[in-house]
Design a protein around this nucleic acid. Sequence first.
DNA 1: CGCGGGTTTGATGATGCTCAAGCCCGGTGG
DNA 2: CCACCGGGCTTGAGCATCATCAAACCCGCG
Lengths: 192, 192
Amino acid sequence: MDISVLQQSIGKYVSLSAQEYEQLIPYFTCEKLNRKQLLFREGAHIQQVAFVLSGCLRSYSVDESGMEHILQFAPEGWWITDMLSFLKGTRSHLYTESIVDSEVLLLSRERQLDMFDALPKMERYFRIVTENALCATRQRVIDTLSLTARERYLQFCDTYPGIIHTIPQKYVAAYIGVTPEFLSKMRSSLYR
Amino acid sequence: MDISVLQQSIGKYVSLSAQEYEQLIPYFTCEKLNRKQLLFREGAHIQQVAFVLSGCLRSYSVDESGMEHILQFAPEGWWITDMLSFLKGTRSHLYTESIVDSEVLLLSRERQLDMFDALPKMERYFRIVTENALCATRQRVIDTLSLTARERYLQFCDTYPGIIHTIPQKYVAAYIGVTPEFLSKMRSSLYR
DNA sequence: CGCGGGTTTGATGATGCTCAAGCCCGGTGG
DNA sequence: CCACCGGGCTTGAGCATCATCAAACCCGCG
């Protein structure tokens, strides 16, 4: 398996020797996912966090009326899991699904904590990754509070120029918090 | 100054010796804040994170129409700052204000990074605090996507039973994402 | 072909906002 | 003690945004 994507991500924040990278490998397991394959499902205890080597995943919740709401997209180089279930051991309220054929590295919480003791630099790496995720999520809260649906769509196009053309529009709608129908109407009024 | 609130917070996640707690003190500076006093303002480079010893703070943004949107409340025992400016050194888009007379400990990013090297347990502590903050913020995103304004209000009452009666209603409105007028109407229709 | 999922379009309706007025109440000065 | 002020909360009328529901369309795929 080619873990160079992970090495690149780690290398951005801490520097590990070749030997330390070797040491890292046994903590992870690799898994291939097909398009639309579920990695984690609602009701389960999520014990793993996934790092995307290739492809793209999404995590979403389904409300009581059956509507999906997307919490996160995870393209190549991103981490994804249900943090709440992963950290607290509660039952998950999220589904995590592969949008296209993907390859992920899985790391269990237990092994992650062992890793933190064995390789303190990895605790630093995850501290920074978590800080960045917190920033991004806070910005999203601000955006949903202060922007209109139209502005949130434009913001999304700005923030994720890469995936906008590779995923169904209805996923964009489920992320910015509107119905697919309304997104369609916004788009038709924008490009005219 | 009485830093037992901080010790209690740290003690929840890592165990420090009395000597290590002593070692910690010089990293922080203490500051008293009056009601409505601004700690950080928009446009500044936020170099510090604040830990609330007593009182309550809030961080909020002001959109171009002058409306305030509250990102976070920080009662006793909580950390607060503009993560984005604090981490990336960008100019802040947030105001951080003391709601009532408060006492905070300030920690600069520079000193925090020194502290991580001197006391790895504190890096672990902040890793966990950040993980928890990420969980909470993600839950908030889910709630704003899947709940109605009425449900978000009830959720808020549930989540923050303590502060609901100590802060102006308009702050609650600015947090859950409705106008003060509409919150008032929701409340009158709820309690009848 | 025909099927099915995604997207579009249109009519209608609910949710939540804007603006304006009035009220309540604690503080301040005469 | 009262008059007055100002900020926060309430109430109401009218309106904008966005959802719902239903129908049609498009297009890749079996």
